[in-house]
Structures are given as structure tokens and as C-alpha cells.
């Protein structure tokens, strides 16, 4: 079976700054991968490379067997047209640290936006599906509310529903609970846990070690643009082998 995400020696630099220095990973279908590490270690950048918000400089990145951001013809790579890149992104949902809901649209309008205008679904179908999704994330009552009227946790749950509305085969979470008050973290993690048990393939950049231990199949510890250590979360968290992992975990746990 082709893995959902396959990264081979992925490198990314911004000018002279090398952020990713050869990341090699594989994420199987239905798996949950958690990425942890100090800030600036490249976790978010790697996540953004997966849906081509950033262009990879070296190495190869495949989602469901398809090369991201480039077309391969013979042994030459051709830059992908914006149109084709947009098509690839439709299959990959992304949830941001700061939610990035559209402030001028209600919760429901946020969710139906892409299905109606990108996928050209019928309005009635999109609204019905959106209501169903709002119900799943426990936000059915707030369909008509604008993002500014919602708490952080509620906004993030709407953001998750918005990403799910495109029926993605892969969900990316970029520190989804880092901007939340501690008491609101649980409601968002609850939704994510449910999603994981339903078989969604997920890549989660997080500082929630409890979530990683409980939900993830695989844990990756990154530092300074490389994967320092990886393995089953319980093992890595309980017996870190590498010095840097030990130092990091002693601070967060």
C-alpha cells in the first residue's frame, strides 16, 4: 500500500537560512503522526511543505503517491502551475494555530465557502453537510455566529469542520491548541481524537504530549531541521535515547 505521506530527504531553505535539512519520513494511511520539538526546529515548515504552502528546495515529497509541487517528466522536474497546485491542496485539509477563519463570514458560511466555490457543490448539499459537520464538532448552535463572537476553542472547532468539509484524505494540524486558553484545549483535542479514531490520516505539530502519547501511532522529535528521534510515542516519551530529546522532554513534561 502506498503511504499517505512519503518524504525523502526534504530540504527547505529561506535564502541562506536552512530550515529543513533532509527530512525522511513515512506516514501510512489512517495513521496519526505527532511532531514535537523546540520552536524554530522546522516542524511547521515541514507541515507547510506537505500542502505546498512552501516549495521544497531538495528531496521529494509525495502525498498518496503523487509528487507535491512539481511534475516529473523523464528525469526533469517542472514547476507546477498554480492551478494544479490548488487541485492538490483540495485533498489536504489544514488547521492553523491562529484558526484563520474568515471574519466576514458566519461559522456556517466559513464551512460552505470552499465546497461551493472550489468544488462547485450544490448549495443545499454543502449547507446540509456543513450542519452535519458543525454538529460533529459540537457547534451546531453557533452556525450563525461570526468568528469574533466565538471563543478560541469554538473557532478552532469550526476551523476543523471547515477543513473536513472538503473531504480531505489527509489532515494537517499546525499547533492547533497553542493559541488557546488551557481550559479550552480539551474541547479541540477531543474533536481531533474522535477524528483519529474514525480513521483520518493526521499529521499534528503539537506541544500536547498527553495527546501524542494517547492518540499518535508515531512520534517524531525534530530539532534544528533534522529528525533527531522517532518511534512509538510511549517509548520515545518514556525512554528518550538522544540527549537533545531528553533535554527537551525534561522541560515540557
Amino acid at each position: 500500500m502506498t503511504p499517505m505521506v512519503k518524504a525523502e530527504q526534504v530540504c527547505k531553505s529561506f535564502g541562506a537560512l536552512h530550515v529543513l535539512k533532509g527530512i525522511t519520513l513515512e506516514i501510512g494511511k489512517g495513521e496519526v503522526l505527532c511532531m514535537v520539538g523546540p520552536s524554530g526546529s522546522g516542524k511547521s515548515t515541514f507541515l507547510r511543505c506537505i500542502n505546498h504552502l512552501e516549495q521544497v528546495n531538495a528531496g521529494r515529497l509525495y502525498v498518496d503517491g503523487e509528487l507535491i509541487g512539481y511534475r516529473e517528466r523523464g528525469d526533469k522536474l517542472h514547476e507546477m502551475s498554480p492551478r494544479d497546485a490548488a487541485k492538490q491542496r483540495r485533498e489536504i485539509g489544514m488547521v492553523f494555530q491562529h484558526f484563520n477563519l474568515f471574519p466576514h463570514r458566519t461559522a456556517l458560511e466559513n464551512i460552505v465557502e470552499a465546497p461551493i466555490h472550489v468544488k462547485r457543490n450544490k448549495k443545499d448539499d454543502a449547507v446540509a453537510r456543513a450542519k452535519d459537520l458543525l454538529d460533529q464538532v459540537g457547534m451546531a448552535e453557533k452556525a450563525g455566529a461570526y468568528p469574533a463572537q466565538l471563543s478560541g476553542g469554538q473557532q478552532q472547532r469550526v476551523a476543523i469542520a471547515r477543513a473536513l468539509a472538503m473531504n480531505p484524505k489527509l489532515m494537517l494540524f499546525d499547533e492547533p491548541t497553542s493559541a488557546l486558553d488551557p481550559e479550552l484545549v480539551g474541547e479541540v483535542l477531543g474533536v481531533m481524537k474522535k477524528l483519529a479514531t474514525e480513521g483520518m490520516t493526521m499529521v499534528v505539530v503539537t506541544h500536547e504530549m498527553g495527546f501524542a502519547r494517547e492518540v499518535a501511532n508515531h512520534l517524531v522529535f525534530m530539532d534544528a531541521g533534522v529528525v533527531v528521534e522517532e518511534g512509538p510515542p510511549r517509548e520515545v516519551l518514556a525512554n528518550p535515547k538522544h540527549e537533545r530529546t531528553k533535554a527537551f522532554l525534561s522541560k515540557v513534561l
Binding site: K87, H98, N100, V118
Partner: peptide, 27 residues
């Protein structure tokens, strides 16, 4: 308009023109 807005639109598979028309310009 904050950058996150066009980023979220891009991540949803919107083209640049649609992002401008539906997300950025109204705000």
C-alpha cells in the same frame, strides 16, 4: 488583510483570483 486569510484560502484549494475576490477584497 492578515496573511493568514489568504493562506487559509490557498490551503482550501482556492486559486489566487478567487482568494482575492472572496476572501481578501471583501475584508
Amino acid at each position: 488583510v492578515p496573511e493568514g486569510q489568504s493562506e487559509a484560502s490557498t490551503a482550501l484549494g482556492m486559486s489566487w483570483g478567487m482568494t482575492m475576490r472572496r476572501t481578501v477584497l471583501p475584508q
